[in-house]
């Protein structure tokens, strides 16, 4: 179990347990349950509703999106707290991992509320295409976020696989400012093995694992582009960010 690609018989039970615990944590904190998602009418915004989002002032749309992201991040924090070993890390490292990884997990979780056929995502009560976010003035970033969701959806991950991948992303041992890199590395390695084990059990083959590892750099790029866009927005609207953005959002992305 310490780095071997094919776990020994004795460690299989351990990996099954980790997969089970992680999956339960994911389902307890995933914001929208399967049953709720099934009940959603997958209703798209009507044209006049789209236009009303598009005609919002830029700062109003930014504020709305900051609120929605913050809500989603609060669930990710709860997920992190239930990851095996996370709360045993020092507080500095918990904060470092969440600051760097919480938005990445929001993007991962987005594939659960994404409709690939219509290229829409659940937002503010209905399914929204990229055009709904026009007022943000970040068309390129929005297009990349939608492309990412579509590409992750195409892997048809189960909730177990999604849970372990989310945990793997959060437990990235290469984040800057970690105090106990080794401990995070151990947790991430164990999560990687559990993910590999579950993928094998689900007869998915190694191709999926490789594709998921490639997604890690795509996630980092999306998040750094989000930070760049926020900086550009804040340069123009410093008071809007200071007075109207959720405090947690500012803590995470405020620099």
């Amino acid at each position: 179990s310490d780095g071997d690609a094919s776990p020994t018989a004795s460690s299989v039970a351990e990996l099954d347990h980790l997969a089970h615990v992680t999956s339960r944590s994911h389902l307890e904190t995933c914001q929208y349950l399967r049953e709720e998602l099934q009940q959603m009418s997958w209703q798209n915004f009507l044209q006049d509703e789209v236009e009303s989002y598009q005609s919002k002032p830029r700062e109003g749309m930014w504020q709305l999106c900051a609120v929605k992201i913050t809500e989603a991040i609060q669930y990710v924090v709860e997920f992190a707290k239930r990851i095996d070993g996370f709360m045993d890390l020092c507080q500095n490292d918990q904060i470092v991992l969440l600051k760097a990884g919480s938005l990445e997990v929001v993007f991962v979780r987005m594939c659960r509320v994404f409709d690939s056929q219509n290229n829409t995502v659940y937002f503010d009560g209905k399914f929204a295409g990229p055009d709904v976010f026009k007022a943000l003035g970040c068309d390129d970033l929005i297009a990349s976020v939608f492309d990412f969701a579509k590409s992750l959806c195409s892997l048809h991950l189960t909730e177990d696989e999604l849970a372990l991948f989310s945990s793997f992303v959060l437990l990235s041992a290469d984040r800057t400012w970690l105090q106990d890199k080794l401990q995070v590395e151990k947790l991430q390695q164990k999560t990687h093995l559990a993910l590999q084990h579950v993928l094998q059990k689900n007869q998915r083959g190694d191709g999926v694992l490789h594709k998921l590892r490639c997604k890690v750099s795509a996630l980092r790029s999306l998040c750094s582009r989000h930070t760049e866009k926020l900086s550009a927005f804040r340069a123009v609207y410093p008071d809007v960010v200071r007075t109207h953005f959720p405090p947690l959002y500012k803590e995470l992305f405020g620099g």
């Binding site: 307890e28 904190t29 914001q31 809500e71 609060q74 669930y75 924090v77 709860e78 707290k81 709360m87 507080q91 918990q94 904060i95 969440l98 600051k99 405090p247 947690l248 803590e251 995470l252």
Partner: peptide, 20 residues
Amino acid sequence: KEKHKILHQLLQNSTSPVDL
């Protein structure tokens, strides 16, 4: 700690998604 006050609070509180 002051810089990440809310994150600290969220990490320390035993909240559940229903409370969020």
